[in-house]
Design a protein around this nucleic acid. Sequence first.
DNA 1: TCGGATTACGTGCACCGTAATGATC
DNA 2: GATCATTACGGTGCACGTAATCCGA
Lengths: 283, 283
Amino acid sequence: MIEIHLFEQLVAFASCGTLSSAAEQLHISQPALSRSMQRLEEELGVKLFDRQKSRLSLNKNGELAVRYARSLLMQENSMIEQIREFDRKRRTISVGSCTPILIPDFVSLLSSLYEGMTISTEVTGDPGLAEHLKQNKYHLALLHEKPDEDIYYSLPVEREHLYVSLPPVHPLADADGLYLKDLDGQTFLLYSQIGFWDGLCRQKMPTARFLLQQDYNVLGELVENSAFPAFTTDYVMKRSRQESDRIAVPILDEEANVTYYCTCLRSEKARFKAVFEHFQAER
Amino acid sequence: MIEIHLFEQLVAFASCGTLSSAAEQLHISQPALSRSMQRLEEELGVKLFDRQKSRLSLNKNGELAVRYARSLLMQENSMIEQIREFDRKRRTISVGSCTPILIPDFVSLLSSLYEGMTISTEVTGDPGLAEHLKQNKYHLALLHEKPDEDIYYSLPVEREHLYVSLPPVHPLADADGLYLKDLDGQTFLLYSQIGFWDGLCRQKMPTARFLLQQDYNVLGELVENSAFPAFTTDYVMKRSRQESDRIAVPILDEEANVTYYCTCLRSEKARFKAVFEHFQAER
DNA sequence: TCGGATTACGTGCACCGTAATGATC
DNA sequence: GATCATTACGGTGCACGTAATCCGA
């Protein structure tokens, strides 16, 4: 067995051309490198250099050895990287969600149940979210539909109902309930990261215009200080202590009534047992 | 960069199951191995083991690391082997010859011209001998025909004429010359390693029988003390000081008059310049 | 004379082994 | 008590750096 730092030094010499510059690059003295290369030759039992007193150069053996050494060093580096990456992945629980609403509570739940783990979350309107569980892109998914396939395990965790938030002067503000199609053609303030709701709105209100807001606080300001209709939900209203003169009119479309399911691969059910037990205890 | 002996020790632990037995196998003390594994974890920045006080076992990271480490060790070993093999090949000049006759002189010529090189020789009747030069099986070939292709460089180095060696009482012993077909059907003493001559004899004398001898000296004894015809050449006779009452009758077939060519790939002509110069000077 | 390689030489420390400790069965 | 891992500790080999030497442009 030959230590890898000898090969590293060989490669450095090949790149630099002289022992002195290679030694400098490696932050060791020139004699140390000279002896290392002698030792490498000795341990291989093979001459790697042409020695012309004041000039050291690779011979054919040396050139071959350098090619091999480069490849070996690449492999070791990549190996180390992959072990670290594997460990990192093992220390993070990755969550994909169809809605941003549940994320804060869900993250703090996971953090308390899985101490030391990193929780990474992503909100997406992608209807193929459950597929990503199979590909291990996510370990857990928050879906608004229970997936069919038997490879998944799901548990309902929350219900949410959609409301349209109207200023009192709005012509529809005194309605008891509205269908989305009744609102088509209007201009809405809309949060940009709302997951699957986005698709629903665009489908049911094809001619509506949406003023997308990246910042949740900015959106709140605009809602309070404009006459544009916006959307909210019972879940949001319950948690927001904010006073508002807006009127919330329930949306009557069936799709506006949503149950969220916490889902994982059935094979990982045991790993997330604590999560599911938490939600079962909640009901 | 992580030294490879740490991975070697990791693999040993994986194979043995405990630090103590692995340490024994590695011929180091148990504490040394314990510290090595701690250092490996530290340098990787990744926990590789489950530590249950009195039991050390690989965790998932560790199992992955062991798989990678095995592959890395394999690669290093194979790399070292290949470098050594490459060097060994570089230090030997491999000669393929259609005849054993020229070998001794040729080997001593090469030895004196290429000091320190190992000369390996092989006698073969294979008509595709020149092909082997292309595949680098041989560096030099001694052929009895000049190959056509332009990728070869050839120089005639010797001529040889075939004789049949008959006891004086043999009915054909007083002939001035003979064709091989005249000798068909008889039983010959024949050296087994005669390269291309073998094919020639069997072709021209399909019903002859050959008493093959592996040992050249034994063959000589038998020739002296039997009445079986045998073959010899002017080249052999010139060099053998041995008295004999045998009569040498020249073979008249055209193929029995041979010129030997020293051949190499044209791309290697420079490497063997000294050889060719030697033969050019000789004429 | 300078730059580069090798040799000589003294030194420090990294790693080892022995011994002790802790822990589990 | 036996086995196994870790910690403590003292000794040493070996690889390093400095300095000297040699060599060639």
